[in-house]
Amino acid sequence: MRDRQRTVEWQVCGVCNYDCSYCIQSKKSRVGHPSPDEVERFLAFFATLPGRWEVKMTGGEPFAFRGFMERIVPGLVAGTGHTLSVLTNLSAPQSILGRFAELTRGRLGIVSASIHLEHVDIDAFVEKASFFRARIDPEARMVVNAVLVPGRLDAVAQAKRAIEGADLPFFPQVMKVGKGVHEYDDGDRARMDGLIGLSRSPRKVNLAPSYRGRLCYTGVDYFVLTQTGDGWSCRTARRFGEGYLGNVHAGTFSRRELPERCAYDICPCTVPANRGMIEGVGAQAEEG
């Protein structure tokens, strides 16, 4: 197994300023954020993680939570040696994005910018993404994610052309539903090849594959952390109510000591695969 990049995916808040029809998160979960005291406990927890981790911050929409820029980002930069990454819909004002770029100078890993065509104009989004990329740490990587929404793949193809025309990496994602993926009809499947490309690598596309039976270090060198402080070995385990690691606020959180064989038929995101957590799958991705 190749080198692993220890990573925690932290859902810093539930609140999101978008309401996408295809969002896999339920509406009832897209609310709320940690209190100031809980933010401080999170920061104290991250300071105890041994070595250098990648803290990939997700939501909801992280920038929609005021405490994200006021305390979380400065606190992680000043109080830990970890690498910071972020998944964002890029709706924050340019002034806020510029401030984020300044704060994370020398510490930023990956910016995953999601384009949601129900809410944004393609050209305006690409312009903002280009603005942000020009200001983030030169050593950091940036990719634009897009969900392959059924019946709307012509619009996704238009977005792909604009994104790649601005020299930004385009990262397509099959649409997830419940505990699986959407069944595309024949018309959409005919369009998929052009959007996905020849590579089926998790570095280039999220096809939500199965790694059942493979040795997996999720829960050991990778875990998911929710805004309430609950830790889970991976996203799929959480959906099945399995892989619970405890709560950081309650002081009960504990990582597994040894890897286990994957027991699931879907790996909904590419982060574990691209950080070297899964047997036989490459590490150190450029996207995701």
Rank of each mutant, 00 (worst) to 15 (best):
Q5Y: 12
D186R: 14
V156W: 01
F132T: 09
N145P: 02
V126W: 05
V220R: 05
N247R: 12
V149S: 11
D185T: 10
E242I: 00
I115H: 14
G243C: 02
L148P: 01
C267Q: 04
D265Q: 07
S112Q: 14
G219E: 00
Q284E: 13
L168D: 05
D121F: 07
H249K: 11
R191K: 15
S85W: 05
K27L: 06
C262N: 03
A140R: 11
I115A: 14
K204G: 05
I110P: 01
I163N: 03
G231R: 00
R107P: 08
G288V: 03
M175L: 14
G165I: 10
G229S: 10
W53Y: 11
G79W: 06
E102D: 13
R214G: 01
R191D: 08
G197C: 02
D121W: 07
P74C: 09
V31S: 09
R107W: 07
E242H: 00
L97G: 15
V144H: 03
R212I: 05
V126S: 00
K176N: 12
R238G: 02
D265I: 06
P150W: 09
G280C: 02
V156P: 06
V120C: 08
N274G: 15
D3R: 13
W10D: 00
K160R: 15
G165L: 11
G243E: 01
F223R: 08
P50C: 04
R41P: 01
Q158D: 14
V181G: 01
N145E: 07
T218S: 00
F125E: 01
R105T: 04
Y18R: 13
A64T: 12
S85A: 13
F131W: 14
P93I: 04
S210C: 03
N89M: 02
E242C: 00
L49E: 07
L108S: 12
E287Y: 09
V15M: 11
P209W: 08
G178A: 10
A283G: 15
D193K: 14
I72Q: 01
E183I: 12
G241R: 03
T226Y: 09
I196R: 01
G280W: 02
V147A: 14
Y222M: 01
F100N: 01
T226E: 14
C16W: 09
H249N: 09
E139P: 04
V281E: 11
R255L: 06
I96W: 11
L198D: 11
R261N: 08
V111P: 05
L245W: 02
E279L: 04
L148E: 02
G229D: 09
V271P: 01
S254W: 03
S254T: 10
Q94R: 15
Q94S: 15
A146S: 15
P169M: 07
M277R: 05
A159D: 05
V281F: 05
T236L: 08
T236N: 06
L225Q: 02
V15P: 01
H249W: 13
Y244F: 12
A146H: 12
E242D: 11
M142P: 06
W53T: 13
D123H: 13
E54V: 12
